[in-house]
Write a protein that binds this DNA or RNA. Structure first.
Lengths: 213, 213
DNA sequence: CCAGTGGGATAGTGGCACTATTCAATAGGA
DNA sequence: TCCTATTGAATAGTGCCACTATCCCACTGG
């Protein structure tokens, strides 16, 4: 497959593919000679993943580069690789340490985590971007006057435990490590809109049940 | 409260507040005289909501304006107002009609909805932006090689039914209609990062349980 | 009386994801 | 062989958008 074919099949313009190649989001093709390069299915798959992250996930190109570097790092075991890829994802605005809303939020998050027995999360929590993003989000809600405590968070967390089991079941169906991590990233990025849409539909449904049309 | 005070208490620069006033995201203050205006707590609350939508939710300013127009429309009953506000939120790329991935996605979504008995969603579904966003997301996953059928979607949807009940319980605690709709919008925008963070934490937790460290 | 304040108007900034152009070296069909 | 098309590199430009900066003027209040 040449560049033009890759562009054709992915519906991504040649200029944009060149841009991604330049930015290191797409590995270079196998150079057939000085003026031609050959691309294969893995390039197509990667290109679609990049598009998904950039367009659907609104992830900055620089972040996509970091995530993919983890996906392709053969020196990591599959589990670590998965963590590392998701590690690089969040769009977090880092919480300020001295903000009282942040301190409260952290306390409640920690209480929720210990109550659920998420020991790993508690130990590595403060280092994880995911944890920090959670704290920052809860703090935002605090500031807006919608406080969330451990009692509010716990049921949602338990529901997410169930979804996580589903998620990993789906992931483990893929044969190779790279494909599994790609699936995890795709799931993190693309499945989120699905979940959120379902939530809003459920809200509409529940509102109708309560208040009628 | 004068403009300077509003800026001080919200930590939003005067220039930005003026910008929001210009764009109609913030109602003008009560003019005390030709050169002074008085703002109250509702302005502060609204300003924080706008910031949350723009910064955390990454919602375009033009969309924020539309959403707030619904929030403030007294001619609507509270339920309709809630729906209308959430109606205006999504900013997804519309699915193309003839795309086979979209057709498959729509079939599976519809099957899932009927199975759950979400009759309202089925009837008004094709008109709802939320429904269309769901179809588009599932179609993206299809194209990427991660097909989702009704069997995959249903358990997630059932879980979201539970969260929706929690959501509306929290919303109904607020006294006035405007505050309730504001709470719903804040919940739609700000609670989403919380849910997603919880999901990723749960994934880390579950991955550790399965594969160890 | 005059520094400060609010609001309107207008232009500028910076980030970012592309997009267009040009160039030189071929490839490949007529 | 000729001629058009293609590739990759380099570089500059575009369009969007959320601010941000600057002026100006009317007026306030110590």
């Amino acid at each position: 497959m040449r560049l033009a074919d890759l562009s054709e099949r992915s519906q991504v313009s040649i200029a944009t593919i060149k841009y991604y190649l330049r930015e290191g989001l797409l590995p270079p093709g196998r150079r057939v000679n000085a003026t031609q390069a050959e691309y294969d299915e893995s390039h197509l798959r990667r290109l679609r993943l990049v598009r998904a992250m950039v367009q659907v996930g609104r992830i900055p190109v620089a972040t996509v580069r970091e995530v993919l570097a983890q996906v392709d790092d053969d020196s990591l075991g599959p589990t670590i690789r998965l963590g590392a890829a998701l590690w690089a994802l969040p769009r977090a605005t880092e919480p300020e340490q001295d903000d009282p809303a942040v301190i409260t939020a952290r306390q409640e998050v920690d209480r929720m985590l210990t109550r659920l027995g998420w020991t790993l999360a508690v130990e590595i929590g403060p280092l994880s971007p995911v944890y920090r993003e959670l704290v920052a989000s809860v703090a935002s809600l605090n500031r807006l006057g919608y406080p969330l405590d451990a009692d509010d968070l716990a049921p949602y967390a338990r529901q997410m435990e169930h979804t996580a089991i589903h998620d990993l079941d789906r992931m483990e169906r893929f044969p190779t490590a790279v494909e599994q991590v790609e699936a995890a990233v795709a799931s993190a990025v693309l499945f989120e809109p699905v979940l959120l849409s379902l939530r809003r539909l459920a809200q509409e449904q529940e509102a109708t049940r309560r208040f009628g049309l």
